[in-house]
Nucleic acid binder design. Structure first.
Lengths: 223, 223
DNA sequence: GCTGGGGCTGAACACGTGTTTAGCATTGAA
DNA sequence: TTCAATGCTAAACACGTGTTCAGCCCCAGC
């Protein structure tokens, strides 16, 4: 991006080392540690990227590009929102990417943002597909539900990881597997049958807030 | 804790300022900024608490004590897990506490840990009560479900906050209210009716992993 | 051969951090 | 009044950070 016909090897080695270190230690990781990982002097890192922030930005672009590529590869493998997590768990090659994304989500960085937006967008498509196939119940606000499902899944994973940090941060596939081992049953149970026996709380809320904030196709039931 | 008959005012002022700054800026907040907030020199902070880590620990104790007190006050007001969030939203006095807790959860600190453990413990009680009252469906693994519900609620809130950081970090009540405004409907809808129309995915999982990791009262259905 | 240029480095700089130390000012007691 | 203790601070220290700079080495081109 920066220089048209750039060096192929050293620059990329530094960038990849940075992605890895950022994924493991967060974006507070020092330039010196990245340089050591790449087998290079700290000065060279700055010489190639100008500053740590620009290195960070380039790592962001790189990870987003990898995500796009990975998604295009497996575009029709996935059938539901948590299918993505299974996909991650199955392929350890995506481990640095997931770690990087989670760090970026935690920092509110642009990668986390766009990643989440993409996941939500995908989830909207998946749920729509599932509804048409008769597998998923329609929601009163599809956009809000897709957003909630993605945020809750990602949030649960994040808290689980900060609460029980894995011994080997590179084994993110194992992390996701552990996460699913403890959370999959309650999640799937919740998705299948809910928790409430009555519609009371939902109806009370619907009475209180008449219409969903989506496209106003239906009339508000009261007031 | 440190000195038996300590000064009542200045020390507490520093501690309270630290809780607030930690809640707003995270635990990376500098000793100098805390000292400025308390209208005091940085050296005095160290003089009173020994080190930043000890100050952090004392803030942890303080917040946990406040939480305990607040919980005892409103012990029977709450009827469900998300009732706690409503309670928070209703009373802005708890704003610094919630901010502090969320920061601590994000850092995997001891306050976040014990807070989550307490929330899970409470959730177990609430769900048990709800089941006996016929309002909540029993789960195949009550402990896992309670844990999942707490983690997902907290995780969703955390991601929402890092994604859309509020202009005024002190107005945590408003933050929670905003959060509920976008997430309450999909959450309550999910809790009421689930998302799946069939039991297929749940049954497949139950077939794959025979018995819940709880107390082995029931026989595994196969193998 | 030489020569120049670029990848690369060691050493330093500027700055922010937590912490220490010497000492100020005020206050209560002898 | 004098002394000592206490609450408190300004200044400095040690360290880690991102970054800069002068100059190394190696290799392509003449």
């Amino acid at each position: 991006m920066r220089s048209a016909s750039a060096d192929p090897t050293t620059r990329e080695r530094i960038r990849d080392a940075a992605v890895l270190r950022f994924a493991r230690d967060g974006f507070g990781a020092s330039v010196r540690s990245i340089a050591t990982d790449a087998g290079v002097s700290p000065a060279l890192v700055i010489h190639h990227f100008g500053s740590k922030d620009e290195l960070h930005a380039e790592c962001d672009e790189r990870v987003l590009a990898e995500i796009r590529a990975a998604k295009n590869e497996t575009i029709d493998e996935l059938a539901s929102g948590q299918g993505i997590l299974h996909r991650f768990a199955a392929a350890d090659e995506y481990a640095p990417m997931l770690g990087y994304v989670l760090r970026s989500v935690q920092d509110g960085g642009p990668v986390g943002r766009t990643f989440i937006e993409q996941m939500i967008e995908d989830a909207v498509g998946y749920t729509k597909h599932g509804i048409e196939a008769g597998l998923i119940k329609p929601s009163r606000d599809e956009a809000a539900r897709a957003r909630y499902l993605v945020l809750s899944a990602l949030g649960t994973l994040m808290i689980e990881l900060t609460l029980n940090p894995p011994e080997d941060p590179s084994d993110i596939g194992g992390m996701v597997r552990d996460f699913l081992a403890t959370s999959y049953l309650p999640m799937i149970e919740l998705y299948t049958q809910g928790v409430f026996t009555t519609r009371r709380m939902l109806d009370e809320y619907l009475l209180y807030v008449p219409d969903p904030p989506q496209d106003p196709a239906a009339e508000p039931p009261s007031a």
